[in-house]
Simulated assay, not measured.
Amino acid sequence: MSNHSLCRTPCWNGVCVGPDKCACSDGFKGSLCNEDVNECGLVRRPCSQRCMNTHGSYRCYCEPGYTLGADGYTCYRGRACSSLRCQFGCQIERGGAMRCLCPPGLHLAADNKTCEDVDECEQSLHVCPPRRTCRNTFGGFVCVCQDGYVMGTLEGSVQCRDKNECLTGTHRCSRHAQCVNTDGSYTCQCRDSYHGDGRTCWLRRAPQSKTHMYYHYKLSRRTKPLKPYL
């Protein structure tokens, strides 16, 4: 039996190492490794000056008049990047070269000065856990429940669970149909004596006997429209 099968709920940002036990990747914590670690709030701050927490990581920034070094942590006085006219800031590369820097979730535009949004939803189809859809935001993304699911408690943890449209009354079945809930959706089935697609149901008409049909035929032949007077 693999370790993965020992975890009833998958580890979000880590690996299963035992019965319902996850080993989290750096930057994450929690029983399912689904909680971000705020490195900027730790007693030993990782940055020499300003720190910005990101999902699963962090980014260091410097005060005005300082420049971020190549290590990504240390700020050095002097060599201001005003000449580069960066939108946000700059950092010193290895070898002494300088380049503009963008906050997490953004990347340098073609002019190497301004920053553009990164669409994380287009970069990866598996950025969100099952039953969730990725929605891009400026500088990041959020995972929202897919249609047919709502956020709630499932198996002891907060997850996207099935939305029972039949129970909540949010279905679009005919009043002459029965709503049948399915995982993430529902179906409509017309009741007895009705037919249709479930969204619309018509009453079935009883088949007419040949005697009944012949009677109406003879009646129609006897009834003639009145001729108008000229």
Rank of each mutant, 00 (worst) to 15 (best):
Y73L: 15
G18L: 03
P129F: 00
Y66P: 00
S48E: 08
T211I: 12
Q123N: 09
K113D: 05
E93M: 10
N136F: 03
G105C: 08
Y215W: 13
M1G: 10
S31D: 10
R221S: 11
S57M: 02
C145S: 03
P10F: 08
N13K: 10
V127T: 09
P46C: 08
Q208W: 02
E120L: 09
Y214Q: 14
C40W: 01
R161G: 12
K218N: 13
R191I: 05
M98Y: 01
G95Y: 09
A70W: 07
M151G: 09
K224G: 08
K21H: 13
S5P: 00
K29D: 06
H171K: 02
V127F: 06
R59W: 00
G169K: 02
H171S: 01
S83H: 14
D147L: 11
E165M: 06
R204D: 11
P129L: 10
C60D: 05
G169D: 01
C190Y: 06
R131W: 01
C90G: 04
L101F: 12
E116L: 14
R135I: 10
V180D: 06
Y66V: 07
C160Y: 02
S157E: 13
W12A: 14
R94V: 09
P104K: 11
V142G: 00
T200C: 03
T114I: 04
R175E: 07
Q123A: 14
G41R: 12
P19Q: 11
G184H: 02
N136M: 03
D117M: 07
R135K: 10
R45W: 02
C121F: 05
R59E: 09
C16S: 01
S220E: 14
R85N: 15
R44S: 11
A70S: 13
K218F: 15
L6A: 10
G156T: 05
D20V: 11
Q123D: 07
G72N: 04
Q87R: 12
S220V: 08
Y58S: 00
T133M: 08
S5V: 11
S25N: 15
Y73T: 12
P225H: 10
L84H: 04
R222Y: 13
K113L: 07
E120D: 14
